[in-house]
């Protein structure tokens, strides 16, 4: 079976959720995988590596409603330095918000890249609540979908899959508030401090009126 090239497009790849999703994929893929992070300096090396693979899985987060600029930079390099044999491209995307559909635009950007550059398009898995889901009991739901993604790619039966925490929006809001409050606590920052409305600290006017 042909090995799959897995490329992590997260700006924080070495410590990313994408890395954990990619690891699950590798665990379930019978094809076997080779895993790569995108770094500032390895773009051309990755383009070269690609020659050896017939399937490529991009794993990355949603950033400002689109693909992260780390991945965009890489795609532009790849456009200039394409492999002779273009692999089929699949996408495993995760976003912080609950709704997996918030990933749709970024997935369509990947489709556009593939179409413009002649890469066959494979499968998609869209994960909602992806910042936290792996550390909750809902992890099993993600694992199941990633296994399905891997199976489909193995059989070349391409599909669009999605998964998120099975919570109402209100419950997600409450759960995420606990998650972020604890995140702050680890840095000795209180919920109230995190809720500051100020951007870059007090405004000029407030600075002037502040007593010494």
């Amino acid at each position: 079976m042909e090995k799959i090239m897995v490329v992590n497009g997260s700006p924080r790849a070495p410590k990313s959720n994408s890395k954990r999703y990619a690891a699950l994929f590798s665990k379930y893929s019978k094809n076997g995988t080779s895993y790569f992070n995108i770094s500032k300096t390895n773009h051309l090396a990755l383009c070269g590596e690609m020659e050896a693979f017939s399937h490529l899985l991009f794993v990355f987060p949603l950033y400002a409603d689109g693909i992260p600029v780390t991945l965009l930079h890489f795609l532009k390099t790849l456009e200039q330095n394409p492999p002779k044999n273009k692999p089929t491209v699949s996408v495993l995307i995760n976003c912080g918000f609950l709704e997996s559909r918030q990933n749709d635009v970024a997935v369509d950007m990947m489709r556009l890249f593939c179409k413009e550059n002649g890469y066959p398009f494979g499968s998609v898995l869209k994960i909602g609540s992806g910042e936290a889901i792996l550390d909750t009991p809902f992890r099993v739901l993600v694992a199941r979908k990633i296994r399905k993604l891997a199976k489909g790619i193995e059989k070349k039966e391409y599909q669009v899959l999605k998964v998120s925490m099975p919570l109402s929006r209100k419950m997600f809001l409450r759960a995420s508030t606990v998650y972020w409050t604890n995140y702050g606590k680890k840095n000795n920052v209180t919920k109230e401090q995190m809720e500051t409305m100020q951007i870059e600290g007090p405004g000029e006017d407030e600075k002037k009126t502040k007593p010494f």
Partner: peptide, 22 residues
């Protein structure tokens, strides 16, 4: 690819301090 090119996209990604985590 249907999105902002790198310069603008970088700027937008750097603007998340204007939001809270919540």
């Amino acid at each position: 690819y249907g999105g902002y090119d790198t310069v603008m996209k970088t700027m937008l990604e750097r603007a998340i301090p204007v939001q809270q985590a919540f």
